[in-house]
Write a protein that binds this DNA or RNA. Structure first.
Lengths: 106, 106
DNA sequence: ATTACATATGAGATATTATTCATATATAAA
DNA sequence: TTTATATATGAATAATATCTCATATGTAAT
């Protein structure tokens, strides 16, 4: 089902709704990293990390810059930071521990 | 791949990353509605709307209240409103028309 | 120009998620 | 207490997204 604003939002949120990409973003919020650094840190295959970086890049959740042979990726602090803030606020207010909501890592 | 904060965020974002649920939220941001009103408005099957309402409810993106035989659903204006604001800001700044990003409904 | 290293990418296999259909439950009215 | 209406739910199917593997590309050093 695709239409209107919903369709417009869909790419945004679906890009965020993947554990690998979220883990990548989490790392990149700390500091910029290369593909292999990310792959090592997350214990994931380089190709998988690359695939997911590409998607994050398409929505400009991250940016890229070259350093020698490497590509250094950085998080879009503005957007990602704001999202995490909302998520945190929502979880605190609306997702008490023990409920059906698994937001808080239970 | 599931872990830490990433896992905590995952349910939040994956719940939002579905065209039907986004369409439902869009409608509910305008005004509270019953299941059949939503189904009519979105031209979707009642059972499908119900399934998706259930998921939105699990993350408290919406609330429920009974009115006779009906169940009236309302959006969590605080969280959903904040998310849409960020999305809008992000799209304006980082997703110029014509790029690879399809956020703005192109 | 050959080699090594870092990253990207395509395509198939797999996993996840959504949708549909049939049916159950719950409320209220007759 | 039967019937009608509103909604929920389980299970099978369909659609979509992810991951893996093989390999390509791009950069720099020798």
């Amino acid at each position: 089902m695709k239409r209107g604003l919903s369709e417009a939002c869909y790419k945004f949120f679906s890009n965020m709704s993947n554990p690998t990409r979220l883990a990548v973003l989490e790392k990149l919020m700390e500091k910029p990293m290369s593909v292999n650094e990310l792959a090592d840190a997350l214990k994931q295959e380089q190709s998988m990390v690359s695939h997911n970086l590409k998607q994050l890049l398409e929505c400009n959740f991250i940016t890229q810059q070259r350093r020698g042979k490497q590509r250094i990726y950085s998080a879009n602090q503005e957007t990602i930071g704001a999202l995490l803030k909302i998520l945190d606020n929502h979880a605190q207010k609306y997702c008490p521990t023990g409920g059906k909501c698994h937001l808080r890592g239970d």
